[in-house]
Design a binder for these strands. Structure first.
Lengths: 223, 223, 223, 223
DNA sequence: GATGAATGAGGGTTCATTCAT
DNA sequence: CATGAATGAACCCTCATTCAT
């Protein structure tokens, strides 16, 4: 693999002026990404839209990648804001209520900036920022897992890591696919049904079940 | 949006000589994608690896995009081969068995060429081939939906479209995330557990349930 | 200067089959030139339109240039056909009638295929075929000069070469500019005026003049 | 017709540094055109000769065409400089003197850079810059026509547009053909004869004539 | 710090021409 | 002779990055 360009912001951007420049750059990048796609997002163009010189861009971001990474981070941070809050609120809720909340929040999170989300998902070749995305995923995983472990009593006996993995994957996938490929489901009514169904699935999976059929279902046919 | 480059193969490539060239090109592209990433996959390099001149590349593919699209198509076709077969086999199976089969096949499909799958998912900016991918998704959706409708009697009363959407999303997400991010789960033993769990979840969701709790779970708290 | 590609047709094309192929190629070239411009006239495309393989093209024309040269030659030959005929007819006419005829024919000649004429004039970078064009010019010059010399008695005493040069340039320029840039002058009525005027100019120039003013005009102010 | 590349310079190039670069590029282009022909004038080569990087070339010219257009414009501007000046000087001159001046200037103008003029005329496929050339032609036409109209009293009764067209075409053609194809006529002596003759022709055409023969010449034989 | 002119490697693509079949 | 697949030099152009001012 070729040497990858650096990816971390060059300074803490604590000074107010710097801060404004950095923000303008990230914002400009996001805007171009959304409005014109990744291909059109050249550093010169970004600087221009941000009202800043290319030189300044490189003062704050060591590479184009770092800039894109910042956009991704910012987007993820917005999502994480919702998710963290939700998980705090959820801490003392019973599973069913909690899952419903999480499903709802997942969809909301994907709706924060769906166009940006799509571009990020479809057009951005990931090279260096995988780590950031993974960190993000890990945090979600940890938070959810912690919650699930705290609710062990209401649940079947499952490996908590596995359960977390399956539930998070499921919820994320439903939210993602809905927002990106089935916008028609986002009407208030239909979204409610979607949330109901997804919740039912996840809760049905996690919760202890008195249905012998279901218990059997989880085991392969003997032999 | 700027005009996108053409994407369809230029000739039917029926002659054997041509066919060989086309294959070599697609194969070379896939190999470079896997071994060196999207960035290194320049047309000149692809042609070189394919043992062919750039001119020949453009004789058969009108653009670099078309070539990548061909790789994607080929990969999807391999996946669809498995999936179609599985769905044929599944036609007369009861839900539990069928879902287990589909989950298994989904994981197998993602393991056909996981590295390529990852590159395709993470590094390739989707531009023109969205249609192909959507067609692929639609086919899967249709096949699954048809199966589910044929099994209506064993299922809860759910909107079949919605059910299909949720199940397909779930299974795909689990398979995708497992293969790409949790290769450690692919040991024979652990994969079995994973399949069991996923199956349990989906079947629990689809099948009629005698558990009143679960039935309640799907409805929001009154008021 | 770099070595220029060969330009002469490869064979005399005496066989009928060959002749047909050659014609098809020249015709196809002319058609593409007119309909799509020089840039689109690739040898592969020409061969395709001619219903022949590229290989065959190169059987008869050693280079693309040779093909274009052939088109130019054919076009010039058509023009020369008119001009030669006109000059034969003109041989025994008095100057005024003769010039009128030549002006008329010049315009007619430019109207044979004005679109091709324009492309030839505007879009074709001349490299090798200058010789052909010069030969064409020389022939016209010679024919006209011969005529003028035969009419010496009706003319002022002028250097025949110079007179030929001026008259041919003038007539050619008027015809060329009219057809290419002032198509609106080609209505029957207006063209008549144009021919009248041009004829008047040329004849006034050639013929002996009884006007002392004019005679004076030709001499610079003494000192 | 395919979309044509842009043709206007990219920046105003007001800064001195930029200005120098732009000049170097135009100059290099002209030089290569003259010394090696259009075919050899690749953007990379032009930049190299200009002592500048290709990138800089594209900073100031959006396409190769734009660069060539700039060369053409510059050349036309030099010509127009002479022509405009001449027409100012000519404003109060009688026709004979004026025409002589214009003929002289036309030849001078073509001698400014005859090699460039030839390349421009023979090798450059006109694509986008037709408008510029037409504008140039229109300006000449307008200036000359204005002069002629101011001299109406000394002239025959002719449609001024037509007269302008014929005179301009004639003078331009003579100058063009002389400089490009009959350099041997450019010796001081011979050029004088050429100017005399051309002047005689044009003046004889424009001026009122007492020669009944000539007046008759302009009319077709009755019936 | 900020600026933006300059850089140049490298990318995608074309097309005249060749030659094995 | 005809075919058309193959060739590859060369072209135009972009854009992340640098650095003198």
């Amino acid at each position: 693999m070729a040497r990858k360009p650096p990816t971390k912001p060059r300074k803490n951007a604590s000074q107010e002026r710097s801060r404004a420049t950095v923000d303008a750059l990230v914002e400009a990048t996001a805007r171009i990404l959304v409005k014109e796609g990744f291909e059109k997002a050249s550093t010169n163009r970004i600087a221009e839209i941000a009202g800043v010189s290319v030189g300044s861009l490189y003062q704050y971001f060591p590479s184009k990648e770092a800039l894109v990474a910042a956009v991704i981070d910012r987007h993820n941070e917005e999502i994480m804001g919702l998710v963290r809050t939700a998980l705090l609120e959820v801490a003392n809720m019973p599973i069913e209520q909690a899952v419903r909340k999480l499903v709802t929040v997942a969809i909301e999170a994907h709706r924060i900036n769906p166009k940006l989300h799509r571009v990020l998902a479809e057009q951005i070749p990931r090279t260096g920022q995988l780590k950031d995305v993974e960190a993000f995923n890990r945090e979600v995983h940890t938070l959810v897992r912690t919650y699930l472990e705290s609710r062990r009593k209401e649940m079947r006996k499952i490996d908590p890591g596995l359960a977390t993995f399956i539930c998070v994957s499921t919820i994320e996938a439903v939210a993602h696919n809905t927002v990106l490929n089935h916008a028609e489901m986002l009407s208030e009514k239909r979204v409610k049904v979607l949330v109901d169904e997804t919740t039912r699935m996840v809760v049905g999976y996690l919760a202890v079940s008195s249905n012998p059929e279901l218990r059997a279902a989880a085991k392969p046919a003997p032999g």
